[in-house]
Nucleic acid binder design. Structure first.
Length: 643
RNA sequence: GCUGCUGUAGCUCAGUAGGUAGAGCACUUCCUUGGUAAGGAAGAGGUCUCGAGUUCGAAUCUCGACAGCAGCUCCA
């Protein structure tokens, strides 16, 4: 007699050993039908696994995240089988499930392109139709190595696998090294679609050979799949490169790959953001600096940038002297610190700089505004005593949180990165710096993930990662503790005993890159910026030419309130003008016809809210200025409005 | 940087067994003066990314360059 405990607390009794499938059958035929796998005493297992002792069991179905993941993993195997059938001789490297998709890295004798995906999908459907069973085969490490002696990927994977027993899964005529578990048979994998083809390196190592990565996804049913595909389409519409161009914010041209060209609307947006951060700096004891764009090579040698990033720096020669275009602002700040004389009474010094830096990024790495070769950092360098360090870090974290909260941004995660292989400074300095960052995070009760070995060459850092509309995570703000550069530049301050001491430096940037920040914001808001950021806040529309004169007066009056307003007095119908204004994502449109002109009123239309009725310009200004002042987040678009 | 794909009007895209190009939107002009997401007509606009090659003839085929897209790698 064995006892099986279920998640709801009930206990089933069986005469002898039972399979997970038997357990599911006993609970109910519906569940047995939906079952994909099970969890036995906390371990995910195939449905066919036989339980011989008392155990805690739960059944996994497609309605659970684990179920979907498992299904996607099995779908990856079925895709591999299809590829194997269509392209004999293909070697299979690695095929996992992701958060909402799956892929398989293959080494195929023929080039596979997106055009081939329908063919592979068709073959997959055939495999599903034949309903191949997934079966687990176990063998010893030696047997496995022998069996796959001619497949370098399998050998590598076997060597990386833990334990003495190596498991394989077969379905149809395909077999793959795999820990499992899998769905019991091919018909269980639900609705799938292949999405994309791309290159990927073996083990993510750029020095290794490149494989073809084929992406697909799989959902419990057709409806869920359609919803997901629709979501991808919606996310694509938020692409900041398209919105930026359409709204006249910024665009890209081949004359300067990787650097944005900003139009007036984009410059307004930039200036609003800079103005906001500048004001916060003012209120938090920062002073603003501005240092040269181009500085001598010797400076970059001293700072260590030359040794670490010379190939990524833009350089120029004049008068027989070599110069580097700055890739970071910090050396400029270091020069100014060194040129002064500071005592402990002067510290901390919080020096802000909106510096424009250049870094030569690889041609395949640049991407819209989020990865560029020239960008503006809302940078600051804090010089403080070691005793002040932790407090200053906390101030920086709070500063960054304030900005993100105001903008209503979504966090992906916060990361603490420690000493990398290539670094300067002593082990003791690094220890001190890492501890300071860690303690600051802990004291503020902020969750973070550790990223060992990923710090800057001069110090460890906290990075703030935000999520964009398509779910990609982007590193934005950063706080870096630096004992090394004050040493390299031989900085000091005078302490209360008249002795020379070494200050610590914090590098911090809220947006990291203003360009990237604006790219992510564009996608975050889908172009519907909060009123205080919107380049064109109000558009005044005339119903007939007779209202033009009054409309011009309204625009002038709004400008007196510093409200950004434009006039549309084109000779077209009011419906067409409204449509154009909506497509341009203008938050407020004022409809002005004979009635309004006569009564000195404006008819107000708010995007996503519709007609707000009539009021006079003073009342309107009050409404708008309060929304601007409070930095209110914009109303959310309903599902129907997809422009 | 790597692999694959792509490059036709301001934008989105069609086209061609190789015979020097087309639509919609936008733009200009005219008619229309219309009240909360598209009024009508006419017109203008292209060295088909660039350079070489094959050919009687190349936007179309080949090679190269440049740029873009997807993913990988990298991101002080």
């Amino acid at each position: 007699m064995i006892k099986i405990s279920l998640p709801d607390g009930s206990v089933l009794e069986f005469d002898g050993a039972v399979s997970l499938k038997d357990v599911a059958e006993r609970i109910g035929s519906g569940l047995a039908n939906a079952a994909l796998a099970g969890v036995v005493n906390g371990q995910l297992k195939d449905l066919g696994v036989v339980i011989e002792n008392d155990a805690e069991v739960s059944i996994i179905t497609p309605s659970q995240p684990e179920g979907l993941k498992l299904m996607r993993h099995s779908a990856a195997h079925i895709m591999a089988e299809a590829i194997n059938n269509l392209y004999p001789g293909t070697k299979f490297a690695y095929g996992p499930a992701l958060e909402d998709s799956f892929y398989y890295d293959v080494d195929c004798p023929e080039a596979i392109s997106t055009d081939d995906l329908p063919k592979i999908e068709k073959e997959m459907k055939q495999i599903v139709k034949n309903n191949a069973k997934f079966e687990r085969v176990e063998m010893t490490r030696e047997e496995a190595l022998k069996k796959y002696a001619s497949d370098e990927y399998k050998l590598d994977n076997i060597e990386r696998a833990k334990g003495d027993v190596i498991s394989f899964y077969t379905q149809g005529n395909f077999e793959d090294l795999c820990m499992g578990p899998h769905v019991p048979n091919a018909k269980k994998i639900g609705a799938f679609k292949l999405l994309n083809v791309a290159g990927a390196y073996w083990h993510g190592d750029a020095t290794k050979q490149q494989l073809t990565r084929i992406y697909g996804t799989c959902f419990a049913n057709k409806e869920d799949l359609a919803a997901y595909l629709n979501q991808i389409e919606e996310a694509k519409k938020r692409d900041h490169r398209l919105i930026g161009k359409a709204m006249g914010l910024y665009e890209f041209h081949s004359e300067s790959p990787g650097m944005a060209f900003w139009r007036n609307n984009g410059v307004i947006l930039r200036n609003q953001l800079i103005g906001y951060i500048r004001e916060l700096c003012d209120n938090n004891g920062y002073e603003e600096f501005f240092t040269p764009q181009i500085m001598s090579k010797e400076l970059w040698v001293t700072s260590g940038h030359w040794a670490n990033y010379a190939d990524k720096m833009y350089t120029t020669d004049k008068d027989g002297r070599e110069y580097g275009v700055k890739p970071m602002n910090c050396p400029g700040a270091l020069i100014l610190y060194k040129a002064g004389l500071y005592s402990h009474n002067d510290l901390p010094l919080r020096w802000a700089e909106f510096g424009h830096v250049h870094r030569y990024e690889g041609s395949g790495e640049i991407h819209g505004l989020v990865r560029v070769r020239g960008f503006t950092q809302d940078d600051a360098h804090v010089f403080c005593t070691p005793e002040q360090l932790r407090g200053e870090i906390k101030e920086c974290i709070k500063f960054i949180f304030e900005v993100y909260t105001t903008l209503g941004m979504n966090f992906d995660h916060i990361e603490l990165s420690t000493r990398p292989e290539k670094s300067i400074g002593s082990a003791e300095m690094w220890q001190q710096a890492e501890t300071a960052l860690e303690n600051a995070l802990k004291e503020l009760e902020i969750d973070y993930v550790l990223n060992p070995g990923d710090g800057a060459f001069y110090g460890p850092k906290i990075d703030f990662h935000l999520k964009d509309a398509i779910g990609r995570s982007w590193q934005m703000g950063t706080i870096q503790v630096d004992f090394a550069l004050p040493e390299s530049f031989d900085l000091h301050y005078i302490d209360d005993k008249s002795e020379r001491k070494r200050p610590v430096m914090i590098h911090r940037a809220v947006s990291g890159s203003l360009e990237r920040f604006i790219g992510v914001l564009t996608e975050h808001y889908a172009g519907d910026f909060p009123l205080w950021l919107a380049p064109e806040q109000v558009r005044v529309l005339t119903v007939t030419d007779a209202a033009n004169e009054y409309a011009e007066k309204v625009v002038k009056e709004l400008k007196k309130y510093k409200i950004r307003a434009k006039l549309d007095k084109r000779n077209s119908k009011i419906g067409a003008k409204i449509r154009d204004g909506e497509l341009a994502k203008v938050p407020y449109q004022l409809i002005i016809g004979a009635k309004e002109a006569e009564n000195a009123q404006v008819s107000v239309r708010r995007r996503f809210k519709g007609d707000l009725g009539t009021m006079n310009v003073g009342e309107l200004a009050e409404l708008l200025l309060s929304e601007i002042e409070s930095k209110e987040l914009p109303p959310v678009a309903d599902a129907k409005t997809d422009n």
